[in-house]
Design a protein around this nucleic acid. Structure first.
Length: 605
RNA sequence: GGUCCGGUAGCUCAGUUGGAUAGAGCAACAGCCUUCUAAGCUGUGGGUCGCGCGUUCGAACCGCGCCCGGAUCACCA
C-alpha cells in the first residue's frame, strides 16, 4: 500500500473520530505539498469544515494533531489556511529508495512474480493497436512519424501496465493512387528499378506518383487550351483514363497488372521496412487492404435484412444516423461494392473474432474523428457487443512554420530526410563539443542515431496527441533544454558516475536507515517514487506526453542535484553511498520512463 | 449551417479528481568550466490563462453564452 493511500484512509478515520462523520476515501484531497511550504503531503481541509463547524485553521489543527498521534510515519505537521501539511519521517524515504533499488524493472507492472501483488485490483487486458497505416504510393512523411511514435509508445505504455498488446499495421496497397504510380512507371521509367536508380523503393515509387501528377496536369492544361471545360478536362485526361483502366484490370485479376502491382508494392514495402527500422517501430501483424477491401459486405447485407439499414431506389445501402445527431452514411455503392466504412466494419469484426481483444485502438489522425464515431455507432446498431471496445486514438496535424504541409507545394517533410538530417546535426554538434573522443566511428554512429531519434521522439511525444502541433525543424534539432537529448545526457551522466564509482572501488549498497536525507535528496526520492503512478495514468489516458514531461522533470531535478552534491568527493561514507544509490535509481527511472516513449539511452554522449 | 477539437509568457509547450503566489524550454540579458560530462547549473525580465456571466470557501480546470482558429459532414481512402 502506498503511503498516499494509507494517509487517505487515516484521514477518513480521523474525521470519523473527531466529528463522527463517515466519509469516502475519494473525498479526501491529498496532494504533494508545494515546494515553498514545509511538508510532504497536504490534506485540503476546506471540505471538512461543514462537518467540524469550525474555521479551516482549527479543523486542520485538530486533524493534524490526531494524525500525528496515530501515524508513526508522520513526524510533524503545520497548518496554513485550510491546508494541513504533513511531514513524513526521513526514515520512510530511505525505505522507498531501497525498495526502488530492489526492483529490476522499476516502473513496469511487468509479468514477473511481483505482478500479482502490485497489480492487485487492476486487471490484465488484451489490446490491439493499429497504427502507421501507410499508402503504398509515396514515402512516409512527418505526419506518419507522429502516428508511428504515438502507436509504438502507447503500446509500450500499455505493456508496462501489464497488459498484452498486439501491434498491427493496415497497409493501403490498392486503389487508384497506386495505379497512378504504375502508369507513370510504365510510361517513363524505361524499366528502371530502385537498384538501378540507386534509390530507396518507396522514394522511387513516390517519384513516379509525382511524375504522374505532372503529366496529368500538363494534359489537363492542354485540353483546356483546346477548348474543353476544366471539369471535363480533369475527368478525361488520357493518363487518368489509363489509371482507371488499370484499376479495372487489377480488380479483374489481369496477370500482367497484378505482377506489376506486386513489384511496385514490394519496392515500397522494402523502403518502409527500412524507415520503420530507423524509427524503431515494428508490428506483430501486417494487414493488406488488397486482402480485406471486400470484407464487411455480408455484415451490411445482414444488417439490411434485419432492418437496421435501408436501401435506396438505386440499390445503394445506407445507415440512418440522424437519430444520433449525425447524417446518413453510405455502406454499399449502387453496384454493390464496399466503401471504406464497410471494410472497417469487416476488419473489426474479423479481429474481434480472431483475437478476442478487450479493446481495439486505432491510431489515426483527427480528420477521421467522424469516421470512427460513425464506425462504432454502426457496429452497435448491427448488434455487435464489441462496438464499444473500439477506440480512436486521435491525434492532431503536424504543421510547419510556413503552415500546413502540402504535397502539391512540395512542403512535405520526408521522414527519411528528416531523420538523416537530425543524425547529421547530432554528429556535427557532438564533434564540435568533442563529446565522443575515443569512440570508434561505429560506436559513435550508434550514439548519433540514438540522440537524433531521441530528439525527434521527445519533441513529438511531449505534446498532447490531440493537439495540432507545430514542428519547427530548427527547434526539434535542438539538444538543449526541454529535449530528448537532455534526458539522454542526464542518463549518460548517471552512468558515468556509476563507472567512476566502480573504478574507485565504491559499490552502492542499500541505504542506511540511520542516514537522514536532505531536503533535495528527499525531493528526488519523491519524484522517483511517482513513476508507477505516472505510468498508470499514462496508460489510462493513452498519453505519452505525461511520461515525457515526467522524464524531463526527473532529469532536470537530477541535474540540479548532481550539480549541488559532489558525490564521489563526499567524505562521509554513509552520505556518499546514499547519494550514489539515489543517482543510480534516478538513472533507472529516467531510462525506464524514456524507454516507454521508445527513446533509447546512450551510455555516454 | 451541424458535429468534434483547440485558444495559457514574444515563440513552442506543461499544468493530476477544482486548491496555496499559474510552470518549463527557446529567445534576451547577467554570472559559473583547476570540480563525478558546460548537450549543464544559477539569476533577471516577461501573464487580463480568448471574452463575459454563473456555480463555491476557492475556477486555467466545472456550466451557459459569445469571439477566434482547425478538422469534418463524398457512391475517396
Amino acid at each position: 500500500m502506498t503511503i498516499e493511500k494509507m494517509l487517505a484512509t487515516r484521514v477518513v478515520t480521523a474525521v470519523k473520530e473527531c466529528y463522527g462523520v463517515e466519509m469516502n476515501e475519494k473525498e479526501v484531497q491529498l496532494q504533494e505539498t508545494r515546494k515553498e511550504f514545509a511538508g510532504d503531503w497536504t490534506v485540503v481541509v476546506f471540505p471538512f469544515t461543514r462537518y467540524s463547524r469550525k474555521s479551516p485553521e482549527a479543523t486542520a489543527a485538530e486533524l493534524g494533531d490526531y494524525l500525528q498521534r496515530h501515524i508513526v510515519e508522520i513526524k510533524e505537521y503545520n497548518v496554513i489556511k485550510g491546508f494541513l501539511n504533513l511531514t513524513i519521517a526521513p526514515a520512510y524515504w530511505i525505505g522507498v529508495l531501497n525498495e526502488v533499488a530492489g526492483e529490476e524493472r522499476y516502473g513496469y507492472a511487468g509479468r514477473g512474480e511481483r505482478q500479482g501483488e502490485r497489480q492487485g485490483e487492476r486487471e490484465r487486458k488484451r489490446y490491439m493497436i493499429e497504427y502507421s497505416s501507410p499508402n503504398t504510393n509515396k514515402p512516409l512523411h512527418l505526419g506518419h512519424i507522429r502516428n508511428n511514435f504515438l502507436g509504438w509508445s502507447v503500446s509500450e505504455i500499455l505493456r508496462a501496465n501489464g497488459h498484452e498488446v498486439i501491434m498491427v499495421n493496415l497497409v493501403n496497397d490498392r486503389g487508384i493512387h497506386i495505379c497512378k504510380s504504375m502508369i507513370a512507371w510504365k510510361k517513363f521509367s524505361g524499366g528502371a528499378t530502385p537498384e538501378s536508380a540507386g534509390k530507396k523503393g518507396d522514394h522511387f515509387v513516390g517519384d513516379y506518383y509525382v511524375r504522374f501528377d505532372r503529366e496529368y496536369k500538363a494534359q489537363v492544361e492542354e485540353l483546356v487550351k483546346s477548348g474543353l471545360p476544366e471539369e471535363e478536362a480533369k475527368e478525361n485526361a488520357p493518363v487518368l483514363l489509363e489509371a482507371r483502366e488499370m484499376l479495372r484490370l487489377w480488380e479483374a485479376g489481369d496477370p500482367a497488372t497484378i505482377a506489376l502491382w506486386r513489384q511496385m508494392n514490394d519496392w515500397v514495402l522494402q523502403g518502409f521496412e527500412e524507415t520503420y527500422r530507423l524509427m524503431g517501430v515494428s508490428f506483430d501483424k501486417i494487414y493488406f487492404e488488397s486482402e480485406t477491401y471486400k470484407k464487411g459486405r455480408e455484415l451490411v447485407l445482414k444488417g439490411l435484412a434485419d432492418g437496421v439499414l435501408y436501401r435506396k431506389e438505386n440499390g445503394s445501402v445506407w445507415a440512418d444516423l440522424t437519430g444520433d445527431g449525425l447524417d446518413h452514411k453510405l455502406l454499399l455503392r449502387d453496384d454493390g461494392t464496399s466503401v471504406y466504412m464497410t471494410q472497417d466494419i469487416g476488419t473489426a469484426h474479423d479481429r474481434f473474432n480472431e483475437f478476442d481483444v478487450d479493446e481495439e485502438i486505432y491510431v489515426v489522425g483527427n480528420e477521421q474523428n467522424y469516421h470512427f464515431q460513425v464506425l462504432s455507432l454502426i457496429c452497435e446498431k448491427l448488434g455487435f457487443e464489441w462496438a464499444r471496445k473500439i477506440k480512436h486514438l486521435s491525434y492532431g496535424m503536424v504543421e510547419l512554420p510556413e503552415g500546413r504541409m502540402k504535397s502539391r507545394e512540395g512542403t512535405v517533410v520526408d521522414a527519411d530526410d528528416l531523420i538523416a538530417e537530425m543524425i547529421e546535426t547530432a554528429r556535427a554538434t557532438s564533434r564540435e563539443l568533442g563529446k565522443l573522443d575515443g569512440y570508434s566511428e561505429e560506436e559513435a554512429g550508434e550514439v548519433y542515431r540514438k540522440v537524433a531519434l531521441g530528439a525527434l521522439k521527445y519533441f513529438i511525444l511531449k505534446v498532447d496527441p490531440k493537439k495540432t502541433m507545430m514542428f519547427n525543424p530548427r527547434e526539434s534539432i535542438d539538444f538543449n533544454g526541454n529535449t530528448g537529448p537532455f534526458i539522454q545526457y542526464t542518463y549518460a551522466r548517471v552512468r558515468s558516475l556509476e563507472r567512476k564509482a566502480r573504478e574507485a572501488g565504491i559499490t552502492p549498497r542499500p541505504a542506511d536507515l540511520l542516514s537522514p536525507l536532505t531536503g533535495k535528496e528527499q525531493d528526488l526520492v519523491k519524484l522517483i517514487a511517482r513513476l508507477p503512478a505516472v505510468v498508470a495514468e499514462a496508460g489510462a489516458n493513452y498519453s505519452p506526453a505525461l511520461l515525457a514531461n515526467y522524464a524531463y522533470d526527473l532529469a532536470k531535478e537530477f541535474n540540479q542535484f548532481y550539480h549541488d552534491y559532489p558525490i564521489l568527493k563526499e567524505e562521509n561514507e554513509t552520505a556518499r553511498n546514499t547519494r550514489l544509490l539515489l543517482a543510480i535509481q534516478c538513472g533507472k527511472a529516467i531510462r525506464n520512463a524514456a524507454g516507454m516513449l521508445g527513446i533509447e539511452m546512450p551510455e555516454r554522449m
